[in-house]
Write a protein that binds this DNA or RNA. Structure first.
Length: 881
RNA sequence: GGGCGGUUAGCUCAGCUGGGAGAGCGCCUCCCUUACAAGGAGGAGGUCGGCAGUUCGAACCUGCCACCGCCCACCA
């Protein structure tokens, strides 16, 4: 006897199967097969901590795709790995050090790097075990890390080639600087937030005049670095000052009054102080007008020696002091409250300081052109499609990318600076001498690369590039990328540019953009709100398959996902339902029964199948087709939802209930069909709920070692018979109407009631053939078919489609309630009748609408008429209360 | 300042190519019927944000408006 517990126990099952799958090498991609490849590279999680719900969603979706394609016979590869995440990881470790009262400088670079590597190991082990707990079928033999030996080689190769092609340059420019992280960051790493501040109006004396030029600024401390005042060339108010000079207060520096169209005449006084050293606009203006740059704020956010009396002060302190000093001198005209955007460091929220420094940049325009083209011509397709516009807009307006970081954790820039002539020699390996002056004293650049530089290579660096490997040949370009909208620019765009540049082909054919996983009320999950749901905790409590299914069914493309615990409980129940549906069949099955497609085909041809068999087989084919279609277009929410409904509410609720009598009577046909449908359903469900389906599949008759490698079912459209499905629907509606009538009259569900039916001739034949089902599922006794219903005795009555029924009672019912029920039903039908009449009376509708729509309306109108007549009849037939 | 998305049942959301408004959870009634109480049967609940237009027909297409959210942008 088969021993299956009454409820599904995920823990036991999950432990068992994952290690077996992995040990047997089922996850491995191959290079020695003629099968078409389907590959995905994981968006590598940062080694900063543990996985959150977003990762769980992302991984689940990828695993669904990979498992599906694997079953479809593709040579699949899902390549896992992690990201060294430069600045983010360095910050994590620095925080740990701070707990010990230390800074990274106390350790020194080498010891600090060692410390980060130690942490990396811990975080990575943790992350990888979490990915395994999610059931992900990654090829662990190909696991990569953005900072491992091979990938570092790829990074150097790319850097050198870009440099040689003139696409990387070093120079002194204004960059975004984080004074806390003490590094330059890219434009993307600055997050702007509306902030309430002030607008200081400052009087700049005009040289050789009593006049003042009033400028407005939100950052008075930067005035110390002003090297001009700008007005609009068409601004009549200032024409008399053309070519003039202003005297910078506090510094007593003479600065020119320049004219430039970047000035907005409407804003403030129409005169702008120009600080090329600390403002992006002013920097540009400074270059146009060849203005000197005075750097008054340093890398720590303190005032430099060039800030005169304010040197050494923190920038905010300096702001207050400058304002106070101006006030004292009567040069502060007014201070207004002012709202504006302030940029902060993405990693630490410190207010970013624009300052001039020497950095390395990628000239991205040439790269962006190809990357733009590839999306326009459909080589890479975004799902949902509207993201391609967001991508294109960004690519079109792209600025050069600052790639150097003054950090310790990351790929050292492969450039060696000459101690003698200052030249940078860029090379794949350490050069013996300076490439310009030949000096033997080149020292490697201490800066590291932006972490996205290495992740931008991920789709090919992980496959062995720059070597020409079988892996590259087989799996590049990858098939799909699954990722969040938040890293389209950071990551997707860079991969597109670099993939096209170095592989001559897009890195992926499809980009599936997922939304944000939110808390059950649609709020963003965050530590401060305390509403974080830990994937591991819910897996522990509800089982991996329930968590996966919840994520899958919620994942409408591009939409955010409120992760609902109550919903997950519902899907855990679904897992249990699958378990018990299978359990029922297994407990009642003959061992050795064969339920392969050919067996069912023979039964079909011999005509041994009954209506319910043909119906469920037809529905299975339809669901199979739909699942395929939906997965193909990344409608994972629809695919999973359809399967849910089919398995539970069609297979279990109807089919299994319909055949119980046959099963008890030893009908092997029913057993075969049921087993077949179950086995196919498990395969269809496997990508979504891998553990449960494997566990059950192993107990069913089949060939093969694992459901993972069993073929994904292919629909047989010839098994879809619309007539069967239509008739079955009618039967279901009648049974439901009978149940409703009983329930609403509070009839004991166990009591069998004798029934009379009146219906059209054709329906009668059909119902007679299905009367056993009516008896079982609606708890009926004797059934009679009459031309008109008799009226004697106590009865409850009802109607479904064209069939009228009457159930004889031997107990009193609440006549008022029954009357009320009939009237409600009549009311609803009356509304339908009016609506349909209006439609059909409309000549235009009849003339212009497609024939099948008009026919459908006519048929419905007829049915509604019949039902109404019958209900009226019944209502009048009710005895007075 | 530009761009994108959303507004559907008490809650959270589906609704594909325009043609009888759906799911899960919650709520109410009945039932522990030997697959499953993490279950079964039934029920209540919606002017599909507003207005206008296109159409025989609009939750769906178009325009305007309102509110919410997101992204991008150098307004001192």
């Amino acid at each position: 006897m088969i021993n299956l517990p009454k409820t599904y126990d995920p823990k036991r099952v999950e432990r068992k199967w994952y290690s077996l799958w992995e040990e047997r090498g089922y996850f491995k991609g191959r290079t020695d097969t003629g099968k078409p490849a389907y590959s995905i590279v994981i968006p590598p999680p940062n080694v900063t901590g543990s996985l959150h719900m977003g990762h769980a969603l992302n991984c689940t979706l990828q695993d669904i795709l990979i498992r599906w394609k694997r079953m479809k016979g593709f040579n699949t590869l899902w390549l896992p790995g992690t990201d060294h995440a430069g600045i983010a990881t360095q910050n994590v470790v620095e925080r740990q050090l701070a707990q010990e009262g230390k800074t990274r400088k106390d350790l020194g670079r080498t010891a600090f790097e060692k410390r980060v590597w130690k942490w990396k190991k811990i975080a990575e082990d943790n992350i990888l075990s979490q990915i395994r707990k999610l059931g992900c079928s990654c090829d662990w033999s190909r696991q990569r890390f953005t900072f491992d030996e091979g990938l570092s080689r790829a990074v150097r190769e790319v850097f050198v080639r870009l440099y040689e092609d003139g696409l990387i340059y070093k120079g002194e420019y204004l960059v975004n600087w984080c004074p806390r992280c003490r590094t330059a960051i890219s434009d993307l790493e600055v997050e702007f937030a509306p902030t309430r501040g002030h607008l200081w109006h400052i009087r700049y004396p005009v040289k050789s005049s009593d006049e003042f030029l009033v400028v407005a600024t939100t950052r008075p401390e930067t005035m110390l670095g002003d090297t001009a005042v700008a007005v609009h060339p068409d601004d009549g108010r200032y024409h008399h000052l053309r070519g003039g000079t202003a005297v910078l207060p506090l510094m007593d520096r003479e600065i020119p009054i320049i004219e430039d169209t970047f000035v907005d005449r409407e804003f403030g006084t129409g005169a702008v102080k120009v600080t090329p050293g600390h403002d992006p606009n002013d920097f540009e203006a400074g270059r146009r007008h060849e203005l000197p740059i005075v750097k008054v704020i340093d890398e720590d956010g303190r005032m430099t020696a060039d800030a005169g009396a304010f040197a050494g002060l923190d920038r905010y302190r300096a702001r207050r002091r400058v304002a106070a000093e101006l006030e004292r001198l009567g040069l502060l005209e007014k201070v207004e409250s002012h709202g504006h955007n302030v940029g902060r460091c993405q990693r630490c929220s410190t207010v970013v300081e624009p300052l001039v420094s020497t950095q390395w940049f990628v000239r991205v325009k040439p790269l962006a052109r190809t990357a733009l083209q590839a999306v326009e011509d459909g080589s890479t397709v975004f799902v949902p499609a509207n993201y391609s516009k967001i991508y294109s807009d960004w690519m079109t307006n792209i600025h050069d990318w600052c790639i150097s970081r003054q950090l310790w954790w990351g790929h050292r820039i492969p450039a060696w600076n000459c101690e003698d002539c200052g030249h940078s020699t860029v090379a794949r390996t350490e050069p013996e001498s300076c490439s310009r002056c030949g000096s033997a004293r080149p020292v490697q650049e201490s800066d590291v690369l932006d972490t996205w530089f290495s992740s931008g290579l991920w789709p090919f660096s992980t496959l062995g590039w720059p070597d020409r490997t079988r892996d590259l040949e087989t799996f590049y370009p990858t098939s799909a990328l699954v990722t969040g909208f938040d890293i389209i620019f950071f990551w997707v765009a860079r991969m597109m540019m670099l993939g096209l540049r170095f592989r001559g082909d897009v890195p992926f054919g499809k980009v599936f953009i997922t939304g944000l996983v939110r808390d059950p009320h649609g709020q963003k999950m965050s530590k401060s709100k305390g509403n974080i749901i830990d994937p591991l905790e819910v897996i522990e409590e509800y089982g991996c398959d329930a968590v996966r299914f919840t994520l899958a069914v919620s994942a409408a493309p591009g939409a955010d996902i409120p992760f609902s615990i109550s919903r997950m409980a519902g899907y855990r129940a679904f897992c249990n339902k699958i378990w018990n549906g299978a359990r029922y069949l297994l407990l009642n099955l003959d061992q050795g029964l064969s339920a392969e497609e050919e067996d069912i085909g023979r039964l079909w041809e011999k005509g041994s199948l009954r209506l319910e068999d043909r119906w469920i087989l037809g529905r299975l084919q339809q669901i199979n087709q739909e699942t395929e279609r939906n997965l193909e277009r990344f409608f994972i929410h629809s695919a999973s939802n359809d399967l849910y409904h089919f398995f539970w509410h069609e297979f279990c609720d109807w089919y299994v209930e319909l055949i119980k009598g046959r099963i008890n009577g030893g009908d092997t046909v029913a057993a075969q069909v049921a087993t077949h449908v179950l086995e196919r359903s498990l395969r269809l469900l496997h990508p979504f709920v891998p553990f449960l389906t494997e566990e059950l599949w192993q107990r069913l008759p089949h060939s093969g070692d694992t459901i993972m490698l069993a073929p994904f079912p292919e629909a047989r459209p010839e098994w879809i018979d619309p007539d069967d499905i239509e008739r079955m629907t009618q039967l279901q509606e009648l049974i439901t109407a009978l149940r409703t009538a009983r329930a609403e009259n509070n009839i004991d569900p166990r009591r069998r009631l004798p029934a009379e039916f009146t219906c059209p001739f054709l329906t009668r034949g059909f119902l007679e053939s299905q009367s056993h089902h009516l008896k079982t599922l609606a708890q009926l006794g004797e059934i009679e078919f009459l031309d008109g219903l008799s009226r004697e005795g106590l009865r409850i009555t009802g109607v479904a489609n064209t069939t009228q029924f009457s159930l004889r009672l031997d107990q009193a019912i609440d006549l008022a309630a029954e009357k009320d029920r009939l009237q409600r039903q009549i009311g609803r039908l009356e509304e339908d009748r009016i609506r349909l009449d209006r439609k059909l009376d409309n000549e235009n509708f009849v003339r212009k609408a497609p024939a099948h729509i008009v026919d459908g309306a006519r048929r419905r109108r007829q049915d509604v008429g019949t039902q109404l007549n019958r209900l009226q009849d019944m209502l009048h037939g009710l005895p007075e209360p």
